[in-house]
Design a protein around this nucleic acid. Structure first.
Length: 272
DNA sequence: CAAGATTCCTGGTGGC
DNA sequence: TGCCACCAGGAATCTT
């Protein structure tokens, strides 16, 4: 899916259209996503949107009755703001018609996404949001975060930083990109990476995610911003999806291998 | 407990 | 053009 930059891009795109409006109608065309959309989502009708927040790759829509919507885009999901008259596409599963006469439409071909209605309490306490590591762009993500996560673990460093218990939001694209920026080979055992290199990696993760957000995220196939436009960070990827292409720094062909069941890319000269 | 494999679902791509 | 194997941005849940 959408990794953290794409979810944050979506949040920023939705925020000005959604906050302060009332959900006039909730339309569910298909309930069987990764989890079944609960019937109680109908109770969101008539509620006003107080805020739209992001935690990890989840979006939380706070409503004025204390309930909230919890949305995850899975691997192929997107949320767009459109006129309600726009024809429904094959994989448009949910529509939230707003009092402003616009509609937020959830589209997800692979249906790995999630749309839940939480009737009350703290959304952050929901089981899906428990056991999550720190936000990479917040102050509680520090080199100590990675030092602790990597101690006594022999898994590749790339797999370690993709573990949401280590730090959230680092998906397959940005894991490869962050390791390139930090000049670390992705298959280095996590417990063999020195603290000074983990320090570099901490900063690299922050930088690559921030840079991508500034470009509206990365569009490979499915991802679209809430205005229907793609994100442009793909043009700034150093290694991801560039197998055999010349490294943008040293011209050495980019290498590719499967690591932790996921495609991984690196420059054998720039990364040690 | 750590590590690795499997699973959910659909669509795009590339080989033949 | 058609068929088919394979791959895909996530993450929970198995097995080893």
């Amino acid at each position: 899916m959408p990794e953290l930059p794409e979810v944050e891009t979506t949040r920023r795109g939705l925020e000005p259209h959604v906050v302060g409006t009332t959900l006039r109608e909730v339309i569910v065309r298909r309930r069987d996503l990764r989890e079944v959309i609960p019937e109680s989502i109908a109770q969101a009708e008539g509620r006003r949107v107080l805020a739209i927040r992001r935690r990890s790759k989840y979006l939380i829509v706070d409503l004025n009755d204390g309930s909230s919507l919890l949305i995850h885009l899975g691997m192929s999901g997107s949320l767009r703001v459109i006129p309600p008259s726009e024809p429904w596409k094959k994989h448009d599963h949910v529509g939230l018609t707003l009092s402003s006469d616009l509609q937020v439409r959830f589209h997800d071909p692979r249906r790995f996404g999630i749309v839940l209605h939480l009737s009350g309490g703290d959304p952050l306490a929901h089981p899906l949001l428990g056991n999550l590591g720190p936000e990479p762009l917040e102050d509680d993500f520090t080199v100590e975060t990675l030092v602790n996560a990597c101690a006594k673990r022999s898994i590749p460093i790339k797999v370690a930083i993709m573990d949401a218990k280590t730090v959230v939001g680092v998906g397959n694209i940005y894991a490869s990109e962050a390791l390139f920026r930090a000049k670390i080979l992705p298959d280095t055992p996590a417990n063999a990476v020195s603290k000074s290199r983990l320090k570099r990696l901490t900063q690299a993760i922050r930088d690559v995610l921030s840079d991508s957000i500034a470009e509206g995220g990365t569009t490979l196939r499915d991802f679209l911003k809430s205005d229907g436009e793609p994100g442009y960070f793909r043009q700034k990827l150093f290694v991801y999806d560039r197998k055999d292409e010349p490294c943008r720094v040293c011209r050495t062909p980019i290498r590719h291998a499967v690591m932790g069941q996921r495609s991984t890319y690196w420059c054998p000269k720039c990364q040690k």
